[in-house]
Amino acid sequence: MKQLTHFLEGFGSAVQLLFQSARFAGTLPRQRARFIDQCYLIGYTTLPIVAILCFFMGSVLALQSGYSMENFGAKQFIGSLVGLSFARELGPVIVAILVAGRVGSAITAELASMKVYQEIDALVTMNIPPARILVLPRLAAVLVMMPVLAIIGNLIGWFGGAVVCKYVESIAIEPEAYFSALRRYMKFKDVGIGLMKAEIFGFVVVLICCSIGLNTRGGPREIGASVTKAVVVSLISILVLDYFVTKVLM
């Protein structure tokens, strides 16, 4: 019962934060510098880890599917399997998980520390709403950067699959055949669905992390607890949302 109350409180507080931030949407043009800073943090600094992870996820996917599809004589479809899996599912989910772990934790730590050391209180007494200068630029930046990260993740994942198909002897499929299969069975809609998922996941992750950070109470120990909570709640939200969004968009 207590956990349900906490969950509902947290949910309510995140929704409230979303509405508070939306009220200040008109101030975004004059917060250009903060927005660009956040785009850099969310997009550019996450890119290397997205690239590494997506490359190896694509490779593993091609390797595993090559091994099992060989039994059915369906090796020529590896390209479409890797392509569709990445575009519709793995790309957005991997990117969202990385954003939660890397960016979300940093956001929560920063805001929780500002809250604990009374910087947030100082903003309130200065009549500067934290939702305007701390949350809105982050939400806007994640909306811009998530599709970019997801597209790059998809391309690198597909490329990872192609490398394995070419150089693993038991698969031995040329890149032309691999990409031809990928193009043949994949529609633009599949990529679109993936990008929409990435948008939703990223937005929810940043909102959750901001909300948990701003609601931290106590001392330095609670900052750590908030970061852990933000990452766990974000990961659960991504996977739960993934099911429902997939069901709706199917």
Binding site: M114, Y117, Q118, E119, D121, A122, I128
Partner: peptide
């Protein structure tokens, strides 16, 4: 306009002294 000087200062650690002071007039 009410100004509160916090016990520990509550300065914005990511901003320089100048930017700490300039934040209020810039935002308003």
């Amino acid at each position: 306009r009410i100004a509160l000087v916090f016990q520990a200062g509550a300065l914005f650690n990511s901003l320089s002294v100048y930017d700490n002071l300039a934040l209020y007039p810039r935002e308003h």
